[in-house]
Amino acid sequence: MSLLRVLDVSATGMSAQSLRLNTTASNLANANSVSSNREETYKARHPVFAAELNRAKGGLASSVGVKVQGIVESAAPLNQEYAPNHPKSDENGFIYHSNVNVMEEMANMISASRSYQTNVQIADAAKQMLSRTLQMGKS
């Protein structure tokens, strides 16, 4: 695999982890949201990634990267609370909290941050190898 393609793979990885960090931040920002309707209540969102394999004209694999297939809402149940005096309670006195698990989101944030850092280090190593290769050609 060419060192230039390594930079492409690293870039797709950084882009994917950046999206993961953004969705995690959105989940954490809405963790304490309350609604009077199940449909309107914020549901945790998570990106779905897949390996992407590009094929060259000769049929050989040319590069591998990360493709974002989409963002899905969590299927975890909402937290229902009986609070008849709450201004957002429904006609039965219930309010609905989001299904965001703060501990899980913090773990996702740490994991995404470290994955992003790893991709930066890979890109830096590839850049250094390209630079050394060019210096060898000057000698």
Rank of each mutant, 00 (worst) to 15 (best):
V6G: 13
Y96W: 10
Q69M: 14
N108W: 11
R38Y: 07
G59R: 01
L53R: 14
H86Q: 01
D90Y: 02
V72D: 13
V120M: 06
L28E: 02
N30E: 14
L134Y: 13
G137H: 12
M1D: 08
N27L: 12
R55P: 01
R45D: 04
A44H: 01
V102Q: 12
M103A: 11
F94K: 06
E40V: 05
N119I: 06
N32Y: 12
S98T: 14
A44Y: 02
G137T: 12
N79A: 14
G93W: 06
K67L: 02
S98W: 10
R45T: 11
I95V: 14
S10M: 01
E91V: 04
L19D: 04
T41W: 04
E91F: 03
L134C: 07
F94G: 05
S33H: 14
L28M: 13
E40C: 02
D8V: 00
R114Q: 14
E104C: 00
A75I: 11
A61K: 08
K43S: 05
P84S: 00
H86Y: 02
A83P: 00
N22D: 08
L53G: 03
I95R: 07
S33G: 13
A61S: 10
V48C: 08
V9P: 00
N119G: 04
N108Y: 11
Y116T: 15
G137C: 09
S36D: 11
N32E: 14
S15A: 12
V120H: 00
Q80V: 10
T41R: 10
S89G: 07
S89D: 09
S36A: 10
A123P: 01
T23N: 03
Q135W: 00
L7S: 04
A76G: 06
D90S: 04
G59C: 01
E39T: 15
R114L: 10
A125S: 10
F49P: 01
G70M: 12
L78K: 08
Q17V: 09
S15M: 10
S115E: 15
A125C: 00
N119E: 06
E73V: 08
K57H: 11
V66R: 05
K127T: 08
A51Y: 00
Y96P: 02
T118C: 06
T41M: 11
N30W: 11
N85H: 07
K138H: 12
R38V: 08
G70Y: 08
H97C: 02
H46K: 15
G59N: 04
M109T: 13
Q135R: 03
L7F: 09
M106E: 02
R132M: 06
S10P: 00
S74D: 14
G93K: 07
A50V: 03
R55M: 13
L60D: 11
S36M: 02
E105D: 07
V102H: 04
S131Y: 05
L78H: 04
V48D: 07
Y116N: 13
L3W: 10
S115R: 13
M14C: 10
S115N: 14
H46V: 12
L4F: 13
N99R: 08
A51G: 00
